[in-house]
Amino acid sequence: MALTREQIAGIAYLARLDLTPGEAPVYQESLSRILDFVGQLARVDTASVAPMAHPLAGLAQRLRADQVTETDHHEQYQANAPTVAAGLYLVPKVIE
């Protein structure tokens, strides 16, 4: 499963990762090899097997009572934010 340079660029775009010109061929090579490696799964007969999304089969989602338990801590939470103003997180202008 050899990935093309364009596919690597497409994956990096979907994942929002800037790759340097040096990194792209490295990932092209290693991702292709990883896909070859995991590709051996295709040979396994799983026709009648349900996918297992979770290690503890048979457990169901627990439900939380509908109660407000939180208070306003936005200043504390925003201490980690690169840029904020008037309680808002700021990003470069988003054009709709």
Binding site: V68, D72, H74, Y77
Partner: peptide, 15 residues
Amino acid sequence: GSATTYGAAPNAQAN
């Protein structure tokens, strides 16, 4: 457990 009330100060109801 954050409140869903409309019109709170920005990010005051984001835990």
